[in-house]
């Protein structure tokens, strides 16, 4: 075994050393290759069209966010009179009934989190497009937070799914999902896709040169 093959810590990035990572098998592949020499997957230094894709998914999520909040997410039929309610109506209703924690949880999970996620990703995309070198650490943390929180925003869909399954007292009280449930699923899905499409390394590409040294744009 040659000592050349033993990994040596280097402050330089892999790209600076002429290597790119395979996203399927995590092998380091020399830069000129377009395919992984181990698994055959397409390789590139950065995700292709990362910002564009992120923006496209975000835009889809924003489009779906409108029906998700305007249309009823569930239809409650009580003694023959069906009563549709949107997410916000449900939150207001719960708030008026004094269920503040539940109202807050649903409001945060269903409205605030998707919106915050969209805003955060938009901000990150914008910073990448602007090639901003500042606040790299904060932006990295924001990305981490976005990915962490995203999986919890499905709470509302789960609530509806649970209610539909549980509350089926025929004739007295039944709950059926409304069209907003589907749209809301879409919002969550597309924000997740957007976060996935984003390439976090773009955040520091302009702050650190490929040799790992901080560049001073100032």
């Amino acid at each position: 075994m040659s000592s050349n093959n033993t990994p040596i810590y280097s402050p330089q990035s892999a790209a600076a050393q002429g290597l790119q990572g395979c996203r399927r098998c995590f092998r380091l592949v020399p830069l000129p290759l377009k395919q992984c020499d181990f698994c055959g997957a397409e390789v590139s230094l950065r995700k292709q069209h990362a910002v564009q894709n992120t923006l496209a998914y975000l835009f889809t999520a924003i489009v779906l966010f409108v029906p998700a909040n305007v249309l009823p997410i569930m239809v409650t039929s009580e003694f023959g009179s069906s009563k549709p309610s949107t997410i916000l109506e449900g939150v207001v209703l719960l708030w008026h009934h004094g269920s503040y924690p539940t109202a807050l949880v649903i409001f945060i999970a269903s409205v605030l989190v998707p919106m915050a996620k969209v805003m955060a990703l938009l901000l990150l995309c914008w910073s990448v497009v602007r090639r901003s070198p500042h606040r790299v650490q904060e932006r990295k943390r924001l990305l981490a937070l976005t990915e962490l929180v995203g999986r919890w925003s499905m709470v509302d869909v789960f609530v509806v799914a649970l209610l539909v399954a549980l509350v089926q007292l025929a004739g007295v009280l039944t709950v059926a999902p409304g069209p907003a449930a589907l749209a809301f699923c879409g919002v969550v899905l597309f924000t997740m896709l957007a976060a996935h499409a984003f390439d976090g390394r773009l955040l520091w590409d302009h702050a650190v040169n490929l040799k790992g040294e901080k560049v001073d744009h100032g």
Partner: peptide
């Protein structure tokens, strides 16, 4: 290494 993003439009649109 060229780390700049491609200017082509993505199919994801």
């Amino acid at each position: 290494a060229d780390v700049r993003q491609s200017r082509r439009f993505s199919a994801v649109w």
